[in-house]
């Protein structure tokens, strides 16, 4: 089964989900069968003036996870994750990482078609033009 990345506060399955995708302290990359996990530190993205969501998406693409469970994903991070073939389950909060994975395994998480957050502040209002995407497709 594909690995799942969950935005979290601490490196533990009992950590609460941090609903802010780009600004979460880190991600737990979990194998849903064995519940074995690794932690990716997202601290560097947290303090970025812009592009935190894109950086976080890049970190997850690099981790090999194919599914993200989180609260809110901005449009640019959403485009990034989608381009890398990563599916997104959003609107998850007030639960632990373990509970989120269980919910996903039970089929109770709908994978998103579109981002649920507009760009936040800063340079963000720059519009919603499509990215100049290139690539080998997926």
């Amino acid at each position: 089964m594909d690995k799942i990345a969950v935005s979290c506060e601490e490196p533990s399955l009992n950590s609460r989900i941090d609903p802010r995708f780009g600004r979460a302290p880190g991600f737990l990359i979990v194998d849903p069968e064995t519940m074995a996990f690794t932690f990716i530190d997202n601290g560097a993205s947290q303090v970025m003036a812009q592009g935190a969501g894109i950086q976080a998406a890049e970190n997850i693409a690099r981790s090999g996870a194919k599914i993200v469970l989180t609260g809110y994903v901005g449009p640019k991070a959403f485009r990034g994750l989608s381009a890398a073939g990563i599916k997104i389950g959003q609107d998850l909060e007030n639960m632990t990482v373990r509970q989120a994975i269980e919910k996903f395994k039970a089929g109770d998480v709908t994978l998103a078609e579109a981002p649920n957050r507009m760009s936040h502040g800063g340079m963000g209002q720059g519009g919603m033009k499509g990215p100049g995407r290139m690539g080998r497709g997926k």
């Binding site: 003036a49 812009q50 950086q55 994750l81 073939g85 720059g126 690539g135």
Partner: peptide, 19 residues
């Protein structure tokens, strides 16, 4: 790129020209 206007997303190179 500290602004993440260009990003290697897995195997996909993405440009965010507005950033």
């Amino acid at each position: 790129c500290q602004f993440k206007a260009i990003s290697l997303m897995g195997e996909v190179l993405m440009l965010f020209p507005e950033m």
